[in-house]
Simulated assay, not measured.
Amino acid sequence: MFDPVINSLPAFFAYFATATAMLAGFVALYVMVTPYREISLIRAGNEAAAISLGGAVIGFALPLAVSVAVSHNLHAMIAWGLVAGVVQLLVFVAARLALPRINQNIPEGRMASGIFLALLSIAVGILNAGCIA
């Protein structure tokens, strides 16, 4: 009864560990690329920073999860995860072009900018996930 689950555990752990490492790597890279320090801002109670970073994390995790589900090997999953990371970084660049003051607004706690960036990240993450074949 549990044999299929037990037999699948090594693959589960390999995909889960890789996806978790990729998520942590993405967050580390994302907070290095943005000109403000999300983690410090979040610790200080800045909701705009928390929402915008949370949106980027969800926007990355969605296509990463789909890549886990559809990939037949770990290398393909990693490749799609890298694509998802690049796409999310481009979303931030696009948001900066659309709202040039976003770099000041989020550290100032302006929720509209944080929400906009989060929803843009999630929307693009959904599209990205849908495009993975």
Rank of each mutant, 00 (worst) to 15 (best):
L82C: 12
V33P: 06
A112E: 10
V86Y: 10
A95H: 15
V86K: 04
S113F: 07
I115E: 05
R101H: 09
Q88N: 12
M1L: 13
L62P: 02
V27M: 07
W80I: 01
A50T: 08
V124E: 09
A123L: 10
A19V: 00
I106L: 06
M1I: 09
L89T: 01
A112D: 11
P4S: 03
L99A: 12
Q88R: 07
E47G: 15
P35S: 00
R110I: 15
I102Y: 10
V70M: 13
L64P: 01
P35L: 14
F12R: 04
T20K: 04
A95G: 14
P4W: 01
N105V: 06
C131V: 12
A65I: 10
I6L: 09
L89S: 02
L120I: 05
G81F: 06
V57G: 03
C131H: 12
F92I: 01
G125D: 13
L23S: 09
L82V: 14
G25D: 02
I102Q: 01
L120C: 13
M77R: 10
G85M: 11
V86E: 05
M1K: 14
E38D: 08
A79I: 12
A98L: 08
V27E: 04
V83T: 09
S67G: 15
I58D: 04
G25E: 01
V124Y: 09
N128K: 06
I78P: 07
G59C: 02
A44D: 10
V57D: 00
Y30Q: 11
P63H: 10
A112Q: 14
A44C: 00
M77V: 02
S52P: 10
L9I: 12
V87R: 02
A48I: 02
G55R: 00
I58R: 04
E108A: 13
I122V: 14
D3V: 13
R43H: 13
E38S: 08
L99R: 15
Q88D: 05
M77P: 13
A21D: 03
V93R: 15
L97G: 12
M1H: 15
F60D: 01
L90S: 11
G85C: 09
I39F: 08
A69Y: 08
A49N: 07
V124H: 11
A28I: 15
F12A: 11
Q104H: 10
A123P: 06
N103V: 05
P35I: 07
V124W: 14
W80H: 14
G45P: 04
S71W: 03
Q104P: 04
L62K: 08
T18W: 05
P10L: 00
A49H: 04
I51K: 04
I126T: 14
S67E: 03
F13M: 05
N7V: 10
A98M: 04
A76L: 14
A17V: 00
A49V: 03
V124N: 14
A56L: 08
F60K: 03
L97P: 06
R96K: 06
G125H: 05
N46G: 03
L9T: 09
I126V: 14
